[in-house]
């Protein structure tokens, strides 16, 4: 009996020691993390043109200036909105066409990269590496090169975004494909269906809602990307924003109008797409949340 109690005491002591050690490890990691973050912000502050503390009081100057000018010229806002509407639609079209193009290429890549569905199973690792590289290249790299070759305009941005989207969606789609049941595909194969028929009739109906959901999410991301690429010369609302900014004080009402247009567009698309995605994947809300 005494043995047993002693054992329990031992175990308790050991457990407490373990817990204490784990806690102290956690604390050390936390302190280390905080130290790294502080040091990182210090480094970033040092390498910045203006300091954080010296700039902090100026943080609201620019928004205040824009709002001030905008409120004085509020009557001109509807005209500004109409003026920038074509640019906004170009930005949306860049994002839309790039998402569509990227999704089509992504579908093909994903089917080629999924075990059990691939046309050439041996090429699966190759296709996966290709998708990794496509994902890794930031849009701006391709956009700037194409602007140099093709001149400014929406096409460089569209190609650049579509390239990245193909890789990103290809990876997500192939993960969806892995969960598709192979029964329909085998059934179709037994009737002598070709690879394209097997994919279109056997796989597509199973995965279409998930594809659509990911593509919508990508569309949200691509609108932002399209606006940013406009800023470096690829047309659309970003380009107009850059021009409006360069006119400086006294003309910020146009910049303000663009801010409002961009903000409202992003919020509307985000809300609409998240509502739509929710409907497409009821049972899958958790998965969505992680994105």
């Amino acid at each position: 009996m005494t043995d047993l109690t002693r054992n329990v005491d031992d175990i308790r002591a050991e457990y407490l020691a373990l817990t204490r050690r784990k806690r102290s490890y956690d604390t050390i990691i936390l302190v280390l993390f905080i130290a790294i973050m502080v040091a990182g912000f210090h480094t970033a502050d040092d390498r910045n043109a203006g300091g954080f503390w010296s700039g902090l009081h100026r943080l609201l100057d620019f928004p205040a200036e824009v709002i001030g000018e905008a409120s004085q010229k509020l009557a001109e806002f509807p005209a500004h909105f109409m003026h920038f509407l074509p640019a906004l639609s170009e930005t949306l079209n860049i994002a839309g066409a790039a998402t569509l193009l990227g999704a089509i290429i992504g579908i093909v890549l994903s089917l080629l990269a999924t075990r059990g569905l691939a046309l050439w199973p041996r090429a699966i690792p190759v296709v996966r590496r290709i998708m990794d590289i496509m994902r890794a290249i930031p849009e701006i790299v391709i956009a700037l090169i194409l602007i140099f070759v093709l001149g400014g305009g929406p096409v460089p941005a569209m190609v650049a975004i579509a390239f990245h989207t193909s890789g990103a969606l290809g990876k997500l789609f192939s993960e969806v494909n892995e969960n598709a049941a192979l029964g329909p595909v085998e059934g179709l194969q037994s009737t002598g269906a070709t690879w394209v028929q097997r994919m279109a009739l056997g796989v597509f109906p199973q995965v279409a809602p998930n594809y659509l959901s990911y593509a919508l999410l990508r569309f949200e991301i691509n609108i932002r990307a399209s606006a940013i690429l406009g800023f470096v010369g690829a047309g659309g609302i970003g380009y107009e924003l850059k021009n409006a900014m360069s006119w400086g004080t006294g003309k910020y009402d146009e910049a303000g109008a663009i801010f409002v247009l961009l903000f409202v567009t992003i919020v509307i698309v985000d809300q609409a797409s998240s509502a739509l995605r929710d409907r497409l994947t009821h049972g899958n809300r958790k998965l969505e949340a992680t994105l």
Binding site: F41, D45, A49, G50, G51, L59, P63
Partner: peptide, 11 residues
């Protein structure tokens, strides 16, 4: 907006 206050740079 931030670049107006803090200037260009990593921060």
């Amino acid at each position: 907006v931030l670049a107006r206050a803090f200037g260009p740079g990593p921060l």
